[in-house]
């Protein structure tokens, strides 16, 4: 299932003195199985863009197709589209409302008109995917859980619709490192198992360097870079100029290179950096001995 975005522009409050261009002429094709990292400053248009992918916002001009279906067509059932393109908003735990964890997670499947048996299966599956114990938690009030658990329940509420595409807007915002690592691990596992295409908005360059297969960088409502992380992060200077930066190890390798240490600069992760530095340092040691 692919998502096609053609010449998408969006203007908030068009025709008023407060009008603001949020997106200008965005063109994208997102294919099945990708893990897209979407980065850019606050206000660069990331959140506006993803809200077009499930019809929460409609283009001012341009088209969005999900699985070949035109979202701007009046006859398109947006409800059906939203089952396919799941969306986890920022701080999703602030949208919990159910009396029990079960009721909350069941909201999506019930809206899809599924039978109670199927709903139960979906809830069980979704809670499992986020690493929560169904039997222990299903009858608990979601408001009594810890912050990290609430977030996982909220994400389960979207996964229970079995979306083919999962959009996450800063899924780790406000969590401590342990909680973040846990959530990201679950998302990566889902992606690896081939269950979802992932589009993740984040501010962490380290996270996307490790997880994403493709990186889209936005600025002032337009796409500036679009490619594999290794290619995008090669633009160290331009990214720094945009105030976005690169993973710390990537920056380190660039600095070392410019100081004359013969290292590769296309390094994204700690493991890669370790291997490359060991290689370079051993070469130097042997050379100088």
């Amino acid at each position: 299932m692919s998502i096609v975005v053609e010449h998408l522009s969006h203007i908030y409050l068009e025709g008023t003195p407060m009008a603001k261009v949020a997106l200008r002429d965005v063109n994208l094709i997102i294919e099945d199985g990708e893990f897209v990292g979407l980065i850019g400053h606050t206000g660069s248009g990331k959140s506006t863009l993803v809200q077009h992918l499930n019809g929460l916002l409609m283009p001012t001009s341009g088209k969005v197709y999900v699985d070949g279906v035109d979202l701007t067509d009046k006859h398109t059932s947006l409800r059906a589209i939203r089952q396919k393109v799941g969306m986890v908003f920022q701080y999703p735990e602030h949208q919990l409302f159910g009396e029990t964890v079960y009721e909350d997670v069941a909201f999506g499947p019930r809206n899809a008109g599924l039978g109670e048996q199927e709903v139960e299966a979906r809830v069980k599956e979704a809670l499992g995917m986020v690493g929560l114990d169904y039997d222990a938690l299903k009858d608990h009030s979601p408001f009594e859980l810890s912050g990290g658990q609430k977030r996982r329940v909220a994400i389960a509420g979207v996964l229970a619709m079995r979306p083919a595409v999962l959009i996450l807007d800063e899924p780790t915002a406000g969590l401590d490192p342990e909680g973040s690592a846990d959530i990201l691990g679950k998302i990566q596992a889902l992606h690896r198992a081939g269950r979802v295409t992932v589009i993740m908005i984040t501010h962490s360059m380290e996270d996307v360097a490790r997880m994403a297969t493709r990186l889209i960088v936005m600025e002032h409502g337009g796409v500036v870079f679009d490619g594999p992380p290794r290619e995008v992060f090669a633009q160290v200077d331009r990214l720094k100029e945009m105030g976005l930066g690169v993973p710390q190890v990537t920056e380190l390798m660039h600095e070392l290179h410019s100081r004359g240490l013969p290292v590769q600069t296309n390094i994204l992760t700690l493991d890669e950096a370790e291997a490359e530095l060991v290689r370079a340092l051993e070469l130097r040691r042997n050379g100088t001995v």
Binding site: A273, E274, L277, V278
Partner: peptide, 20 residues
């Protein structure tokens, strides 16, 4: 303690333990 350290801290630690 499951606390993150900066990438360069982790990297220099690894290199140190490999004899650099």
């Amino acid at each position: 303690l499951h606390l993150d350290v900066p990438q360069v801290t982790a990297l220099s630690y690894r290199l140190r333990s490999r004899g650099h």
